[in-house]
Nucleic acid binder design. Structure first.
Lengths: 141, 141
DNA sequence: CTTAGTGCAAAGGCTTTGCAGCAAT
DNA sequence: ATTGCTGCAAAGCCTTTGCACTAAG
């Protein structure tokens, strides 16, 4: 899933390989973990001064249909995106919204099967840990 | 966790037992699964004509601190709330946002431990299935 | 009586939409 | 030469905030 092949993969699916899409794709790989549209835009501000936020959203949407990127489940608010490269789970701080990546295996087959039973085919499973992060822990309730 | 005891539990924690909070608490139990603030307001529109949306949000927030209610992890957009009574997981349609409850066991200890390792204490784990619901399945891509 | 809570309105933040101009094929 | 994309601006949603008034304790 090298970023160099992104151009080619875009064209295969009938999309144009624009500099913006390629840049967003590269930025996502560089940020790796998870990023908001705003963070992506900021990361690219230097190289692409004119890059607009709606364009980032549009690019992320295309990358999503390609399967390169997906949205992370959060407790509302800002949308987080991540690359699909290496699957992992997330710990979200319910106070400040910080997201931490977790590299751990989970037993999700029963849940996936339950989902299939109610009609969700070819679905993916994701574990979300919700709690208080270290920094928020030592503060006023 | 009977709704009748909610008044008492509110006062124990220093909150006032207002009709609005009790009504929101009852509505959440009745809606059971998961509901948006808007749905709660709508469900109570008959009985409490003057109930304003900000009040519903405020009440849900209080119920959240009581531990009666919590936010569900979703892929952005509208916030969903649910009662904490019976733990379960969710299947979310990435197209229309529909949420389906799943009653299945998952092996989440490794993930919870990984979370604890990065400083998330007393956290809860939640599995989110992301895919396409039966209704959206048979439609234009 | 006191002070928290409601209701209303308005602000705020993030995401999406619309459209003219530009660029990829 | 076409038609899709970008960039900008504006609209849209949902959620939160501020403040006067009401009501809980």
């Amino acid at each position: 899933m090298g970023s160099d092949r992104l151009a080619e993969r875009l064209r295969e699916r009938g999309y144009r390989a624009t500099p913006q899409r390629l840049a967003v794709g590269r930025a996502m790989q560089r940020l790796a973990h998870h990023a908001t549209a705003d963070q992506v835009a900021e990361a690219l501000a230097r190289d692409m001064p004119g890059l607009a936020l709606p364009t980032v959203y549009a690019a992320l949407e295309v990358l999503e249909t390609l399967g390169d990127v997906r949205r992370v489940a959060t407790i509302g608010g800002t949308a987080y995106f991540e690359t699909t490269a290496r699957p992992h789970h997330h710990a979200i701080c319910t106070r400040c919204g910080t997201i931490e990546d977790l590299e751990a295996e989970a037993g999700l087959k029963p849940v996936l099967e339950a989902a299939r039973r109610v009609g969700f085919a070819d679905a993916r499973a994701e574990v979300t840990i919700l709690g208080t992060c270290p920094r928020c822990r030592g503060r006023t309730p």
